[in-house]
Nucleic acid binder design. Structure first.
Lengths: 220, 220
DNA sequence: GACGTATCTTGATATACATCAAGTTTTCAT
DNA sequence: ATGAAAACTTGATGTATATCAAGATACGTC
């Protein structure tokens, strides 16, 4: 806890994250079009966010886990422009955005934090654009697995094995490929001994090989 | 100009945008890896931003024109993570981010503005992800042209004709397709009488047709 | 515990776009 | 003004991934 806060300050900061909300698996935290009031910090559980074309094609724009923030899309137009769906039973802190704005005027450290969270999301999306625009199926899936395991590891989970919370179709939507291609690429990695897969369970047997697929050596 | 500001306030706000910088065509405003200090508001000219894979493939992440803000990517790590290149001679306002943070603590209207700008960028990138992940070449180019003409129109330019500032290769990089495919798709639209193209010059002859390609009717 | 449904895997075939190639137009530097 | 380089167009061919299809596995419900 940073210095320079007295007890009254802490109480006010605590109030921002006071209210909580539980969301059942498969249920939306918010949907595109709904009025924006709050940001949400995930306490437990796993989410996907998505946008859709008018004719109903879905694009998964991200997968979010404990500690990550959702709802930033709603600030610009006071309405959400994407959907957030729980992929497992979840609990979030509801953080009214007007409170965040009020307090971040008083506490520069909070202000800085909010700015960094938004900037981080912009940078993440830049890297997804690179993935979707330039990479091949194997590179995309390697990038996805490495990113997922790194984030899980930062939360105290295993560096090498995990259980996917999303379907092949959702992975495919995020990575711009069809579920069959996701499945085939998983099988190919498994055949090559790079990973072990059994449905949702994944173990990364050779992280270096995966890294090499993601970062191919420039041909000299 | 919003109410509630006295002359002293205005002078301080004005100071944020006091310093300017000119960038020649083809030159970078900033590059990935450089230390982040400031956001930049475009006064005149046209930019592209891009990121790259380790083996040198480039992904254009956006095209920016007068009034738009660049540099948000640098906030999270105090270093830029993308490149900003002038596509024509340009001038920007250099806005030191620490000044912006200081002033936005004092002026809620500025604070709100900063938040909206960042949120808008997140929403824009969501829609690019949808484009790259789900749309076909014709839909991508239609979306691109409609977006470009809409932004130019908002700045007082023609609703139907304009001169592209970027090459076919740069358009292709942004849209996740090769320059030949961009060229062919331009030619196809021209053959169908939807647009008129002569190198960089484009006139949108049938905006409704373009809109229909972008928003295909869901098959009932 | 059995049944229906969702999810996943794998094979055969189709296709949108990439790649390779050659020629044309435009731009820019001298 | 002239030549070289960059940008663009168009055609022929190749390929990564989509699509279609069928079976296998896992999951949830009564």
């Amino acid at each position: 806890m940073p210095v320079g806060f007295d007890l009254a300050d802490l109480a006010r900061l605590d109030e921002v994250v006071a209210t909580r909300r539980k969301i059942k698996q498969g249920q939306p935290l918010f949907n595109s079009g709904e009025v924006f009031t709050s940001l949400y910090a995930i306490r437990t559980g796993f989410f996907k966010t998505s946008v859709s074309t008018e004719d109903g094609r879905e694009q998964v724009t991200g997968f979010q886990m404990a500690g990550e923030i959702m709802g930033l899309d709603g600030i610009v137009n006071d309405h959400h422009s994407c959907n957030a769906i729980a992929l497992e039973d979840a609990e979030v802190c509801v953080m009214p955005f007007s409170n965040i704005e009020d307090l971040s005027r008083e506490f520069p450290i909070l202000q800085r934090h909010v700015h960094k969270i938004m900037s981080r999301e912009i940078v993440r999306e830049n890297s997804v654009m690179l993935l979707l625009g330039n990479m091949r199926a194997e590179e995309r899936l390697a990038a996805f697995l490495l990113n997922l395991v790194q984030r899980l590891h930062a939360r105290g989970f295993s560096k090498s094995e995990f259980v996917l919370r999303m379907t092949r179709e959702e992975i495919g939507s995020y990575l711009g490929m069809k579920l069959e291609t996701v499945s085939r690429t998983f099988s190919k990695f498994a055949d090559e001994g790079i990973i072990e897969v059994k449905q949702r369970y994944v173990r990364i047997a050779d992280p270096d090989a995966l890294q090499k697929i993601f970062n191919p050596q420039p041909c000299i």
